[in-house]
Design a protein around this nucleic acid. Structure first.
Lengths: 345, 345
DNA sequence: CTGAAAGCGCTTACAG
DNA sequence: CTGAAAGCGCTTACAG
C-alpha cells in the first residue's frame, strides 16, 4: 500500500479526509488537518500527479515550448533564462510549475506541440518565435488549450500575445540616424519566416518613407541571428557601393560579429559608420565603442507573459482579467558611442 | 464520451483492443490494427498521459533540472542547449520526452527536486552543477529515482555521473605554461561550493607541485562565472605584485571580461601575459588574439549522458549496459595565440 | 466534520 | 484474436 492510502492508514482516518485536509478544504476539523499536514510532512507525502491530474483534468504544469535547434534560441544570449524568472514569480503564487519543452530539431514543431497537447502534459502553453503563418496557433485554438504567444502572427485571428515593439525600435533607430544626417541606412534582418523580421523591415521602410527617403531592398542584409551572422552582415555592408553610413541590427549578438568584421577592414563603428544594435545584451555590453541599443526587463516581460496567460485560463481569469489584452512591449533607448557622430551634410 | 472510449465506439470495437493496437501488441489482427491506427491519426487521438501514467506507473518523461538563477546556467553560453540536442537524439529512440525543470531562484533546490520527484512528474532525472556536498543525490538514491549527475560530488556514495575532465584541463594548462617558461601562474576559480571548483584548483595545485613549484593561495582568484567575473579577475591579476605571467580560467565567458580589463590597462594577452581559457565557446571565438582553450562536443556529451541515464533505468538497462559507468569527459586543446610566447628564462 | 463510493482514462491479465 | 473487468492514485459529490 502506498500513496494516500498509506498516509490515511497511518493516521487511521479515511483517504477522503486526508485529501480534503491536504487540499485546504474548509470542512475539516482543525486538529485533524494539523495531524494530516504534520504526518504528510514527516513521511514526505506529495500527491501523485497522475492520479490527481486524471481526476481533476488539470496538471498544474505550464509548458514553455522552445525550439532548441533554432538560431533565435541558441543565440539569444539567454533571453529565455531571464524571462523564466518572471514567469515563475507569477506561477509560484498559484502552485503552478513551469516545464520547458524543447522541440527536437528533427521534429516538426507542429507535431511536437500536438503531441504535448494531446497527452495533456500541461494545462497551458507559452509559445515563442512565432512565424508569419504559424499553425501552432490554430492548433491551440482548435484544441482549446489556453496559451499566450510571445510574438505576433497572422494566424489564428484573435489570440493572446505579447510582442516586443520591433516597429518602435525600427522607428526610433531610423529617426535617430536621420537626425544625425544619415541618408543611406542599412538594416540586418533574419533569413527565416519569423514574424518579427517582417514587422521590423516594414517599420524600417515606413520610417524611411516618412522622411522622404526611398526604400532600397539592397540595404536589407539577411543573416543568421548570431555573431557569425553579424560578421557576414559586416562583409555585405562593406561590399555595398556606395557604402551605407549606418546600420540597424535586429539581434543582440550580431553586433559582436559585425564589430569584428568592421575592425578587420579598418572601419571603426562610431566614427566611420553608425551602428545601432537591438536588445542590450550582457555580452554586447563589453563592446567598444559602446553600442547604442535598446533595453527591456526580461523579468518584467516574464511576469506580464505569465499574467496574460493566466487571464486566459478559466481558473484564474477573474484574478488576472486586467491582463487579458495583447501588448507591445516597449524598449528603451540606451545611447552609446556607436552612432555618436554627425554626418557632414 | 472522449478519449479511448470515443475512438473505440467510432470503430465499434472494445477499448482494450484499441489500446493493444495502439501500443503495438502482437496479439492484434493486422486489419484491426490498421483501422485503429488510421482512425487515431484521423481523429488526432493521443493517449492521455495521466491515465497512462497512473496505470503504468511511468510517465515517459525525463526531467532535466536546472537552476535558472545561477551564474553557471545564465553565463554558460548556452551550454545546455547544446547538450539537450544530444539528449533528445537518444530519448527519441524510446519515445521518451525531455522536460527541462527550472528551479526558481527563490526555492531551495532540494525542496524543488523533492516536489518534482514526489509528484512523479518524470521517470528519471538529470541533475547538474553538483556541489561538493549535494543532498539532491542522497534524495534521488533514497527515493530510488533513476538519475545521472553531470558533475561529481562527495555525496551519495556510488552513483552515476559524468563530469568534464577539469583536472585534465588544469593539468594540461599548467604543463603547457610551464613548458613556455612560466613560473608564476594564476588561476580563476568559482566563488561557490560547486564541486568542479575544488577539482580544478586541486589539480592545479598538484600540477604545480609536480613541477616543483609552490602553491600560492594568493594566486587563486575567485570570481563569478561571467564576463563580469572575468573583468574582476583582470583587476585582481593586475593588482598582484609581482604580477603573474599567466592565468588559467575556469569558465568560458570569463575570457571576454578579462581581455577587456587587460586591454584597458594596456596589457596584451599573448604578449604581456599568457591566458588559457576553459571551454571553447562560440562567443569567445571572436576574441583577438585567439584564445587558447579546450574543446568538447556538447552533442556527444548529451548523447552519453542520456545513454548513461538509460543504463540505470530498469526498462532500458539491458540495451545500455555498456554505458553503465561513470566517465570523465575529455576536452581537447585548441591552441590559440593568447599564450603563444616563450618567457625569457 | 467524516466515511464510503464513484469515476477520471488508461493498460493488462484473464477468459473465451 | 477480442471483450469485459480490474485497478493505477487521486478528488469530490453525497449521505450521515
Amino acid at each position: 500500500m502506498k500513496g494516500i492510502h498509506q498516509l490515511a492508514k497511518h493516521l487511521d482516518i479515511s483517504i477522503g479526509t486526508v485529501s480534503r485536509a491536504l487540499n485546504g478544504r474548509p470542512d475539516v476539523n482543525a486538529e485533524t488537518r494539523r495531524r494530516v499536514l504534520e504526518a504528510a510532512e514527516q513521511l514526505g507525502y506529495v500527491a501523485n500527479q497522475s492520479g490527481r491530474s486524471l481526476r481533476k483534468g488539470s496538471t498544474n504544469v505550464i509548458g514553455l515550448m522552445i525550439e532548441s535547434g533554432k538560431d533565435n534560441v541558441d543565440n539569444s544570449d539567454n533571453f529565455f533564462f531571464g524571462v523564466i524568472g518572471g514567469l515563475q514569480t507569477v506561477f509560484a503564487r498559484h502552485n503552478l510549475d513551469l516545464a520547458i519543452l524543447p522541440c527536437p530539431s528533427e521534429e516538426d514543431p507542429l507535431e511536437y506541440l500536438q503531441r504535448m497537447v494531446a497527452r495533456r502534459l500541461v494545462d497551458a502553453m507559452i509559445i515563442s518565435a512565432t512565424q508569419k503563418i504559424d499553425k501552432r496557433i490554430d492548433l491551440l485554438i482548435e484544441k482549446r488549450v489556453p496559451f499566450v504567444a510571445l510574438g505576433r502572427s497572422h494566424s489564428g485571428g484573435s489570440h493572446t500575445w505579447i510582442d516586443l515593439d520591433f516597429a518602435g525600435v525600427a522607428n526610433s533607430a531610423v529617426d535617430r540616424l536621420i537626425s544625425k544626417g544619415h541618408r543611406r541606412i542599412a538594416i540586418a534582418a533574419p533569413t527565416t519566416d519569423i514574424n518579427l523580421g517582417f514587422v521590423f523591415v516594414d517599420a524600417y521602410r515606413a520610417a524611411l518613407e516618412r522622411h522622404g527617403l526611398t526604400y532600397d531592398p539592397a540595404l536589407v542584409l539577411r543573416a543568421r541571428s548570431s555573431e557569425d551572422g553579424g560578421y557576414s552582415v559586416g562583409g555585405d555592408l562593406l561590399a555595398l557601393a556606395p557604402r551605407p553610413t549606418a546600420i540597424i541590427l535586429i539581434y543582440e549578438l550580431m553586433a559582436i560579429g559585425l564589430y569584428r568584421r568592421l575592425m578587420e577592414a579598418g572601419v571603426k563603428p562610431g566614427c566611420d559608420i553608425a551602428v545601432i544594435g537591438f536588445r542590450e545584451a550582457p555580452r554586447a555590453r563589453f563592446l567598444q565603442p559602446a553600442l547604442t541599443c535598446y533595453r527591456l526587463s526580461l523579468q518584467d516581460l516574464g511576469t506580464e507573459l505569465a499574467e496574460t496567460l493566466l487571464s486566459s485560463m478559466p481558473d484564474y481569469a477573474e484574478i488576472y482579467s486586467s491582463h487579458a489584452c495583447n501588448r507591445l512591449w516597449p524598449l528603451d533607448l540606451v545611447p552609446g558611442e556607436s552612432d555618436a557622430f554627425e554626418l557632414a551634410p
